[in-house]
Design a protein around this nucleic acid. Structure first.
Lengths: 337, 337
DNA sequence: ATACTATCCTTTACCGTTAAAGTCAAGGAA
DNA sequence: TTCCTTGACTTTAACGGTAAAGGATAGTAT
């Protein structure tokens, strides 16, 4: 059985399709009597507007695309959980895509979303940056864009929901200083702005307390566990003594802890460790990891609001929203507060 | 700037729109020369078919609706993670809805999916059963349906992906018997088939080992932590001595453990506990919970395959797929294997 | 020369809805 | 009476694409 259409309703009532359409869109040039007859028929037949046909004429799908790198990562799910109530509350649907951390798949998903004419796209921190052209094309074709946790692609004019990465570095480093540490190394991330800013926060926090970083304190790293592991090895074999490490993210911090243990040292007694990101399971580790995190749910909420506001309102300036980071103290930093 | 349409391509090449359409749909009545000219133009303009318009004529949206009760529950995310690669691999999009455990919202989401003309719907174990009429209407309007972990709504003819609940009960109970327990109580669930079947499994396993359940061993409960707590209280104050409990699900088992601790007893020394569901964090508890779980990802995968097969193939019989449960031994059952 | 057949396009109609323009009767003003 | 409004519709033309039926041209069979 096929779904009821306006045509059927109009036919059964002996009015035109447009009249039915007008009733459902609350146009005022409809008599109260007709309005009631139409609504009664709508009710009786369980009619529901065909969103596909509507989208075609209105050129609005009332749909947002969400592209995340990995469904199984808890924080991407939290982002979605932040987006969902906002979108659903305002009548928007969510088209979910996972790029599986693969630039090619990300590109395919973006193409798909373009074909489906989504009104907006939330792009959650994909590591892929090869798809700038697609993003540009999307925004050129009046699709609103929000990027979460990414402050690159400078040519792409879109909203961004970020955290304050310098403050992340300051929080982590000050905490270690407060805990009495003085020789605080930093394992940097990959060459992206976020990592650079965390490094700057580290530098600033040290300076604010008149601690001068020694030469060997800054080591290059990356965002993978293996990066942290290798970097820590280098720190431990170097001749500069350190009593704490601030790693650019949690996996890297975990790698660092492994290296410390391998060297027969203790976390936090010999070396205190602080990471960034508050990944799930961080409190499940042999030594629960002190880290700097921020609300992914708020990020999702803000992303959805930015998107919907620029879709519904007239203002269309690219905005940036900063979600404040906060310190999560566990055992790896050797402090109780 | 507006997106390129077939009209534009046809116009620039001096051919008809239909010709362009035929090229893109691989019709054979197109000369090689024309085909190449069209494809070149498509490439040059970055043309991509408008899925909305296509959906309208084809009466197929190539979209699946997913309705889950709660985004933050890890196993619903796992279900989605099982669905995603199958759907995406076959060119289907996923429209994600969360019912927030609320029958009214579930209904609204189902209505929304109906309006959006999704080709199929995956309904993951909602507690709400008030929406049978909506489900019937959807399937009457040729929307394929799969229900995960739900074997009620008998009037709704649809695919189902379930686990073997009797076997769940047998696995849990046999494990406790193997661990040397003899007085094994059961805290039942709410009055739904799944709980009844788990209870039957418990009964069967006992019978198979010639253990006759005493009168007080079966207590009514529910699926909430508080249900397990109250039920356990009753078990502990009754005069029948027990040395193990099989609870109908994990939250209930956790409630039971709390009651045991409150009574000054030990898990598993005084009372061994086994739950069902393998919820996240089950291994994070004061005493990690032994439980019977099954692969949510497989459930998602099967759900997607059933749906897509019945959408693309001709066969349309309602199928049921059983995902096998397996025992996950942790400390609460006092056994090492 | 005539009819038949492929091959390769185009024309027409439709999918379900909405916006814009058009119609038509009733009532009021001049 | 004529003209103008106003209210309450209806008609027409899109939105972007696809399917079915309808040419036109060239080549082949008779």
């Amino acid at each position: 059985m096929r779904q009821t259409t306006m045509k059927r309703i109009a036919g059964e009532l002996g009015v035109s399709i447009t009249t039915v359409s007008k009733v459902l869109n609350n146009h005022h040039d409809i008599s109260e009597a007709t309005r009631r007859r139409v609504l009664a028929k709508v009710e009786q037949l369980g009619y529901q507007r065909n969103a596909v046909a509507r989208s075609l004429t209105l050129r609005r799908t009332h749909t947002l695309g969400i592209v995340i790198p990995d469904l199984m990562h808890s924080f991407f799910v939290e982002i979605i959980a932040g987006i969902e109530p906002v979108a659903s509350g305002r009548g928007y649907g969510l088209l979910l895509c996972s790029s599986s951390e693969d630039p090619a798949k990300e590109r395919a998903e973006l193409e798909m979303l373009r074909g489906r004419q989504v009104d907006g796209v939330v792009l959650a921190s994909a590591n892929a940056s090869g798809n700038t052209d697609m993003l540009l094309q999307l925004s050129r074709e009046r699709t609103s864009l929000v990027m979460i946790d990414r402050d690159d692609h400078p040519s792409v004019r879109c909203h961004r929901v970020l955290t304050d990465d310098e403050r992340v570095g300051v929080l982590a480093t000050s905490h270690l200083l407060d805990a009495g540490r003085r020789a605080i190394a930093h394992i940097g991330g990959p060459p992206i702005v976020h990592a650079k800013r965390r490094e700057k926060g580290w530098r600033d926090a040290l300076k604010a307390r008149d601690v001068k970083p020694a030469d060997g304190w800054l080591v290059g790293g990356g965002f993978m566990e293996s990066d942290g592991y290798r970097a820590m090895k280098r720190l431990l074999t170097g001749r500069t003594r350190i009593d704490a490490v601030f790693a650019a993210n949690d996996p890297s911090a975990i790698g660092a802890m492994k290296a410390i243990w391998e060297a027969g040292l203790s976390v936090p007694d010999d070396v205190a460790v602080v990471g960034v990101g508050d990944i799930a399971l961080g409190d499940l580790l042999r030594v629960p990891l002190t880290t700097v995190g921020w609300s992914r749910r708020d990020q999702g909420r803000h992303a959805a609001e930015l998107l919907l506001n620029s879709l519904e309102g007239d203002v269309d300036r690219a905005q940036r929203v900063i979600v404040p980071p906060r310190l999560i103290v566990r055992e790896s930093s050797g402090s109780t507060r």
